[in-house]
Design a protein around this nucleic acid. Sequence first.
DNA 1: CTCGTCGTATGACATCTGTCATCCGGCAGT
DNA 2: ACTGCCGGATGACAGATGTCATACGACGAG
Lengths: 204, 204
Amino acid sequence: MSSTIKVLLAEDQSMVREALAALLGLEDDIEVVAQVARGDEVLPAAREHDIDVALLDIEMPGATGIEAAAVLHRELPAVKLVVLTTFGRPGYLRSAMEAGADAFLVKDAPAAQLAEAVRKVLAGERVIDPTLAAAALAEGANPLTDREREVLRAAEDGSTNAELAAALHLSQGTVRNYLSTAIQKLAVRNRAEAVRTAREKGWL
Amino acid sequence: MSSTIKVLLAEDQSMVREALAALLGLEDDIEVVAQVARGDEVLPAAREHDIDVALLDIEMPGATGIEAAAVLHRELPAVKLVVLTTFGRPGYLRSAMEAGADAFLVKDAPAAQLAEAVRKVLAGERVIDPTLAAAALAEGANPLTDREREVLRAAEDGSTNAELAAALHLSQGTVRNYLSTAIQKLAVRNRAEAVRTAREKGWL
DNA sequence: CTCGTCGTATGACATCTGTCATCCGGCAGT
DNA sequence: ACTGCCGGATGACAGATGTCATACGACGAG
């Protein structure tokens, strides 16, 4: 091994981030050279530190790990991307791969897989949970239009049609139409279930 | 230092759990002697390993960290309890303290606080984020009755009144009454918002 | 014993939500 | 040029939801 693998770690929960850093620190060939807590701090930190691999949590303020991955892929294509998430949602996997991720790990996988994944992506391999990959393929693509997603996202907190209409500059009837079509596409019975299953599939 | 502090670590996400173990492993005076991934495995593991401190994540299958804390407090009162959670919900803090927790940490606190908390609880101190403590006190107690909570919990996934009535062996009208009073108590405008704010406050 | 609260229930009413048909303008394929 | 889809809108209707008054038995506090 010529020199250590330089890793950027992006994860918003300090305790988890520093714990993961400690875990990776146990590996002789890996060095965590930068840590950030927000998605929008990833690119600047990556530029500053000349890293080999970026380890990105999806759920972060500022920008999601997937958005950060897309930016890194465009701006620093040599950097390998490992996306890490609590939720093994097939839609997340799909978006992550589209954003140029080289590996996709869920946090309830064994810890040993983390260092493994870092080494493998650097060797040019891709690391993906086969079960999840199958699920992502089986599920098909996101059937929702942009607007439908927007309305669903806005409806998540329990806003009424009137509030949604005001917030999105739409008529109340249009809001209901979008929700109605979304409900049908998702084969559920009301907006709450629609929001739920769309989230679950990673389609929001 | 007479001997090392023996810690049980309960957290369902392997990667996080093992990372936290690695973090604690860096401390000379602390030793993680047992790890479990489910709330209902806490007591047996604690019995087997003769531990000083239990570190309990709240969000776990089997039983929540708070439930596990209550059980440990009753069965092994000598064991100190550190409750750890992603969500700094005041209601969680309240329940954790009622369950006999000695420390309450949120995962986005600095990692150093974890080892600190372990040492402090062993020394008989209590460790609580002052901001969170203030919020818990300011918020007052949970105003919802048992049944209202049950119905709200059941309504979380978007079930209709008919489904809720069937699931809870109630009449449809009664379900609506409970939801109505819950909505009023929480000062919101529909069940979705009610579920949301109740969750947020840790009242479910 | 009485008062308040909880769990449960009903009926009536007003409003919100979900569905459907229908329409328009824009834009991408063929 | 035609077809189809998307974004946007309206109106009508049925069904779900939220509110309110009211009722009853159980139970704990006073």
